[in-house]
Design a protein around this nucleic acid. Sequence first.
DNA 1: AACTGTGAAGTTTTTCACAGCC
DNA 2: GGCTGTGAAAAACTTCACAGTT
Lengths: 212, 212
Amino acid sequence: MPLKPSNSIPDIVIGRLPLYLRALTHLRQEGRDVTSSHELGEKLGISSAQIRKDLSHFGGFGKQGTGYQIDFLIDRLRKVMQVNQEWRVAVVGAGHLGSAISRYRGFRDRGFRIAWVFDADPAKIGTKIDDFIVQDVANMQDIIRSNKVQIAMIAVPAEQAQQVANLLVEAGVRAILNYAPININVPPHVMVQYIDPVVHLQHMTYYLLSDE
Amino acid sequence: MPLKPSNSIPDIVIGRLPLYLRALTHLRQEGRDVTSSHELGEKLGISSAQIRKDLSHFGGFGKQGTGYQIDFLIDRLRKVMQVNQEWRVAVVGAGHLGSAISRYRGFRDRGFRIAWVFDADPAKIGTKIDDFIVQDVANMQDIIRSNKVQIAMIAVPAEQAQQVANLLVEAGVRAILNYAPININVPPHVMVQYIDPVVHLQHMTYYLLSDE
DNA sequence: AACTGTGAAGTTTTTCACAGCC
DNA sequence: GGCTGTGAAAAACTTCACAGTT
């Protein structure tokens, strides 16, 4: 996933930062001002030592004897992850899933704004999803290029995912979140992450007692 | 995540099995009969040695000099993960996301069938989503208990996720896939996995060049 | 010649445990 | 007394490299 194979901070650490940020945001919503590595760890099912070690990569954010100032830590983590700005995101696919993603209100306050929704289906192009008008995929590369869009989400059927990814990469997209249940190939300078609920379900059924 | 903290096969290995199964299924769809650890690894961005080692935990599935018989390996992996049966799954939340999940056709041939959709909103209860009628959450525990439902997906707002999880656990659910962007607490015999697109996006923005 | 399965080696990640500070 | 930050130790995970099989 990492753009550089390694600068110095392990990618597995970077992957936990969003979880820390999410938990901290909830604590703040509950009106809390200060927390500890122990409390955070409890909430997340991660050891307190690991949380301290992870955070220490970015500087001494805590105070001995006291813990971590929540506002301060949120602010720092946001800067580290560069979500103290708003990233404009393109969604490809305006089916049930693409529509649900586009309508989801939870991106905005965490650093992302869905700014365009594309589809190839003439029946969908021009229709409205909340505020957006579904755009023709034929115009996608122009729009991505002229707006310097770096992030896209793929919500098309598996058969079309690779083809869509190719277009996105060619237009300059650097980070792809793929909801289609298929691995896609991209050049090394492009990151891909996957969301496939079935992968999680199958992981869990391994441990379940059979139904039959 | 694992039900038993450890039987002997590392959980990280179990987590990769669904990816192998998914890639194998695609290969078969392309008409292929045989593959190798090297080819699978290429597709998945995983080393061939790792794939061989992972698979070797479950027995010798391959043939030296030849590789892996795709049908055979699919069959074995399905059995290992217990997805050679159909698990009935409950969805809680019939908003945009819950509806999109419930309508998604991709569960069926991978071992899962959405069998019930619940919501608390009187405006939604009784409405149809494809074949289902949205059920009242008030009846959820009875339905889960009498049908011995072991798996549920949570697609409600973050504020209600814990409360829903409590009901599910109390009714006997053993595996939860939580789409709400919040950590939930469950007893140790219950597994939880999370789907939060923002976590993936924030992971990637760490490596991007700032937009501004 | 091609490929698996696997001990051994190497690397990464996590935990321990404690000095230092509030 | 409570908590962080961190070297050192331990554990987990991945890769190497090759014997053995087809």
